[in-house]
Design a binder for these strands. Structure first.
Lengths: 346, 346
DNA sequence: TTCGCGACTGGAATCGTTCCCACATTTCCG
DNA sequence: CGGAAATGTGGGAACGATTCCAGTCGCGAA
């Protein structure tokens, strides 16, 4: 053996060339033997496999995809992994990605549009096959579409008709939930909402308004409350609202964080649910089935949402020029104990 | 212009060569202009930048890292993203990764050792700079170490002394928690545990045992209960245990899922907490602060755990030959209302 | 005038694969 | 028996970047 640099020899990772040399055949043959494509004599294949095993050879995925010009990874961009909604979404995607032998690059943009855009650039740089995003603005999607990378928008939609999307019918579900409250006799219903620039938010408000309108209830703008992004903010806002003399008899929280804030506020003020105030939530959470009474909630199946998104993405990758599709998944209203008729006289 | 194939021309993504051609300089110069390394005349740089802008050029990260032989991505392997503990861990890692301009490849192995190993192979194939793993067995770490890829084990440790690790002192915390119950007067304490082949599980059992021993309480093997992996299983097991004539006066659940099962079982049986049974949990969860009474729990800061893990990993990448370190982070016992002295006579 | 040096540029090798092509050998069939 | 087809092999050009090296200038100093 060459006594030159045994240590360096050990350190370097084996390449195809090393395997070829050890097996005593050319790189072309080695490649064929390992990939199983093309002619290779049985004996030679065995020698190559043995050599590859001995050197613990692992093909360099980047070199491969550089040459073949295709990619086995997808980019996923979510807003906040600590929120179970996004975590479940990611879990759904991760499972299916693995099943389809894709790897997943995950970025949590923490609500920052700069982070979002820089993640998109990183995805383009690594030439992902496609991207799944819960967008904060239209710019990510625009950028990716401009770069001709397949995109699926999930949960919120900014680029309707320009890329695929997987959504829940927020208008309909919000309306049904509001109807539920109205049918119990509630007239003064407050809606806690985070953001109305997104389709999720504006659609939920829209569904809420329609239900009121259809029931002939006068819309009251002071009962649509922008409650910020965090439970703590929502809690403060809810304390304000619930401390009013004629406080709403029911509160509809547009997501799980807001619901937490509202629930804590009611608890802070010693209000009893549902006697003093009914509470419902858009988004189910573990705690909502554990507190008593349980919180009536819209159960979005975030895992299914993620699975649908990656299925759509892979279909799009296979057929880039098909017209964009928007998938709308069902969401269920789970009635629990947090809703009842308003107290007489309230 | 060449009228040959305008469509194909539009389709292809711009490469360095295209930018160079448009700017009228060589690839070398273009590369230097874009990277800022080496000499480039100001006018030329401007031209190159303009050309790159016009073609919406995005450098091919894989080609780059193939050439430079370094990697800007890390692999992360967790057991179940739907569990907030792992989701928070991933969130902590994701934040720091982004801050350090690394991308993160995330795999959720769903508790399958095959999935775990195949993820590890995928990481090696993409030549990640390093891997953070909540291992299911020693084999992932062994494999990665064999491939000379830096590894940090988090939460559980299988390869002590052979790679870095970031942990919580499970023995100590479990002991303190048990002491808390003992100091309230409990003698018949059950421990619900998932798995004792992992350091997390066996250490929690160990801490529990030591606390009992130090207090002179006879260890009772029938009170250390393997309650499976899911809340539903734990619930069934807890119903069995709590339905016994002389049921334990306190239950220590070794993680949040188990705690959920135990809590639901108590609720199923109409037992009052803490009057009929005290409950404590290793792992805090959102619901534990929302139910009443709140559940006394060990709060592990999973985000901090993730941050510490990636800090360690990046330090290791910078200095591969330093001796392995094991970081032990603090965890707090959060006393809530779920613990009290056992009922007289119980 | 010549030398040397700093500023600047381009050619070409390289990273680790795949795969087209050319060539060699064997098999098969009319 | 001749040639086509099937089988097996290796050479070498890509893929898209970086970077070493060898040049070409212009200019101030010797």
């Amino acid at each position: 053996m060459n006594e030159g640099a045994p240590r360096a020899e050990r350190q370097r990772r084996a390449t195809l060339k090393d395997v070829a040399r050890l097996a005593g055949v050319s790189q072309s043959t080695t490649s064929r033997a390992l990939s199983g494509e093309g002619y290779v004599a049985a004996g030679v294949r065995a020698r190559v496999l043995a050599a590859s095993e001995e050197l613990r050879y692992v093909p360099h995925a980047m070199a491969r995809s550089l040459r073949t010009q295709d990619s086995r990874s997808i980019g996923v961009l979510v807003s906040d992994l600590r929120n179970t909604f996004y975590a479940d979404l990611a879990a759904g995607i991760a499972g299916r990605a693995r099943a389809n032998r894709y790897t997943m690059m995950l970025v949590d943009d923490q609500g920052s549009t700069e982070a979002e855009l820089s993640a998109a650039r990183a995805f383009v740089a690594t030439r992902v096959a496609g991207v799944i995003v819960t967008p904060l603005s239209a710019s990510v999607t625009d950028y990716l579409i401009g770069q001709r990378i397949p995109v699926v928008e999930v949960d919120r939609q900014f680029s309707a008709g320009r890329c695929d999307a997987v959504l829940v019918d927020n208008i309909d579900v919000a309306r049904r939930m509001t109807d539920h409250l109205i049918s119990l006799g509630h007239q003064r219903i407050a809606l806690f909402i985070d953001e109305t620039n997104w389709t999720t938010g504006s659609d939920r408000v829209e569904g809420f308004r329609r239900a009121l309108k259809d029931a002939g209830i006068e819309p009251n703008p002071s009962l649509v409350i922008s409650a910020g992004w965090e439970a703590a903010e929502a809690r403060r806002a809810a304390i304000d609202v619930l401390a009013r003399r004629e406080h709403p008899t029911a509160i509809f929280a547009a997501n799980n964080l807001l619901a937490e804030g509202v629930w804590r506020a009611a608890s802070d003020l010693g209000l009893r649910i549902p006697d003093d105030v009914s509470i419902v939530s858009f988004d189910d959470s573990q705690w909502m089935s554990m507190v008593s009474p349980g919180i009536t909630a819209v159960a979005q199946d975030a895992i299914a949402l993620g699975e649908a998104a990656i299925d759509r993405l892979l279909a799009r990758v296979a057929e880039p020029d098909a017209p964009p599709q928007t998938l709308v998944l069902e969401a269920q209203v789970l009635p629990r104990g947090s809703t009842a008729a308003p107290r007489a006289g309230a």
